[in-house]
Design a binder for these strands. Sequence first.
DNA 1: TTTCTTTATCGTAATATTGCAATATAAAGA
DNA 2: TCTTTATATTGCAATATTACGATAAAGAAA
Lengths: 110, 110
Amino acid sequence: MGVTKTEHYTDKQNSNAILIRALAHPARIAIIEYLIKVDSCICSDIVGELPLSQPTVSQHLKELKTAGIIKGNIEGNSICYCLDEKVMGKLIAYFTSISNQLEKKKNSCC
Amino acid sequence: MGVTKTEHYTDKQNSNAILIRALAHPARIAIIEYLIKVDSCICSDIVGELPLSQPTVSQHLKELKTAGIIKGNIEGNSICYCLDEKVMGKLIAYFTSISNQLEKKKNSCC
DNA sequence: TTTCTTTATCGTAATATTGCAATATAAAGA
DNA sequence: TCTTTATATTGCAATATTACGATAAAGAAA
């Protein structure tokens, strides 16, 4: 097989999995950290920041874009990428809610 | 190819990627949500909760355990799994710090 | 127009992930 | 002991991911 059985999980679980998966690679973590640091940038900057070839960076950017985490605006003949704060906010909200739930029930079994 | 070039990223980026990757599947998200809900449980409960076979669930549990997100204690002839709140805390702290950084710089380009 | 710059896509190789049947292991209970 | 119950491991097939060279596409600059 090798194909996730998404139809058996809730929509929330699937959509959170998509967002989380988009960040499940150090290169993509590095990209969003860089985007936060510089607060917008053009693609060639990111290629220069990462230890990867231009096609590979382009592929990682596409994955982040497909997940909705980043947006890209054409600017002359280059592209300005930046975070979609609304989507990032959803992911952050999910972890915040987990955090709140863990606060409530302090002493677990193990 | 096909192998992540971990040596070029920071330790933080790599360790966060490992934690994030452990949650990058709806089954594993469902597992940790269940663990939070019941606050400890035995493995067979988890198998009953998920639309997956026992070996597959066992494999997902192993991945969560390898990443450090859950702990398993032998209890008679069954195993009690629960969250490692310290490790979960690291992940939550990472997203909290991103959230704080985003708060500071409100207006991005796109 | 021609050339340069920037980004995306294609094709492909190497490796990783997902899932399950079959089987192994190990403690509990008869 | 033998059997049952609970979990892990093995082996395998299907699919997905990671990476890059080659190339395409499209605007900028000459």
